[in-house]
Simulated scan of single mutants.
Amino acid sequence: MRFRHSDAVRSGYPRLSAGALSACGVDADADTGGLVRAHTARAVARLAGTTESEFPEVLAWRRTFAAMGLRPTQYRCASESLLRRLRRSGDLPRIHPVVDLCNAVSAAYAVPVAVLDADRIAAPLLEVRHATGEEHYEDFGGAVDRPAAGEVTFADSAGRAHARRWTHRQSGHSAVGGHTRRILVVTEAMHDGGAETVPLVLDAIAAGLRAHWPASAPATAVLTPSAPEFDFGG
C-alpha cells in the first residue's frame, strides 16, 4: 500500500508540506487522556487573547480553500474546526484514544491531521488527487455521494473517496473505531514554516503511540516532490 499526492496537486499547491505515519496493533483500550490534555493545553494557550482565524497555519489553509473556489468560512480545514470548537467549548470531543491523540496534536500545531483505518483503504494506492466525479464518499451517517469532478480528495484504488474538500471532512468508511488495528496518519501544512511543523507533528503522534501501544511500531516519513510516496504495507 502506498500513499502520495498527485503531481497535479503538488504542482497546483507548491506550498504544501506533508508527512505520513503508519502503525499497527492499536486498540480502543488505552488511556491517552494525559497526552490529550497536554497537547490541548498548548492550543488553549495559543488561543488566549486571539482566535484561530488569526493563526498563520489556518490563514494559509483558508487561502488554499479560496483558491479551490470554496468559501473558507463555510468549509473549514479540520484543524480550524477543532480549534474553533476548543475556543467555544473549552475541550475537544472524545471519540477513540488514537483519534483523540491525533486531534489534540492537530489543535496544538494548528494543522490538519487525518487518521484512517488502513484496512479500510483499497490497495495498492491512496492518493490525494482531483476527483473525476466517479468516486463515492460515505459520510459518518452512512449516506453516499460523489465529490464533484475537480474536487481534491483522498481516493483509493477502488474509487472510494476518503475525504471531502481535501482537509475539510473525512469519510465514515475509514474512520478509526473499535475494530481498528492498523492506521495511516497524514498531516498537511500550507503556511511558511510548514516544512518544520510537519516533522514535529509526526514525532508527537509517534511518541504518543509508542507510549500507549508499545508494539505499534510507528513509521514516519516527510513527503516531498523528490520523495513523494509513503509505503504503509498492507
Rank of each mutant, 00 (worst) to 15 (best):
T224D: 08
V185R: 06
A163W: 03
A206Y: 07
H5C: 05
R15C: 05
G177R: 10
S81K: 13
H168M: 11
G25S: 06
G172C: 09
L125W: 13
R37C: 01
S157C: 03
R94V: 11
G177V: 07
H162K: 10
I121M: 06
D29K: 04
G194F: 01
H136Q: 15
E52M: 05
P97Q: 11
T73H: 15
M68I: 01
G133W: 02
G159M: 09
L209C: 10
T153Y: 06
L59H: 13
S157H: 06
L16A: 05
R10D: 04
A78T: 13
W166S: 04
V201W: 05
G33D: 14
H136K: 10
R182M: 00
L126I: 08
S106A: 12
A155G: 11
E57Q: 15
P72F: 04
V186D: 10
G25E: 07
V9Y: 10
A123Q: 14
V36T: 11
T153S: 13
R76F: 03
P225N: 06
G142H: 08
A158C: 10
E127D: 12
G208I: 00
A195S: 15
F230A: 06
T50H: 10
T32P: 03
A108L: 03
A206M: 09
G150D: 08
R94H: 10
V115Q: 06
L223R: 08
S11P: 00
P147W: 01
V111Q: 14
P97N: 09
R62N: 14
V185G: 13
A114E: 08
S81D: 13
D7F: 03
A195N: 11
P72C: 02
V186Y: 10
Q74Y: 07
G177I: 05
D7K: 11
R182H: 14
L223H: 06
V9E: 11
P14D: 11
Y13I: 07
V198Y: 07
R88A: 15
A18T: 07
G208C: 04
A78P: 01
H5Q: 03
A110N: 09
R62K: 12
A107V: 04
E138V: 13
R210W: 03
V198R: 08
C77T: 11
M68L: 13
Y137K: 10
E138P: 00
A45L: 04
S226W: 02
A158M: 11
A143T: 14
H173F: 13
D7N: 09
R84M: 03
A155L: 10
L184M: 07
L35K: 00
T220L: 01
H179L: 03
A122E: 15
G19A: 00
M190N: 05
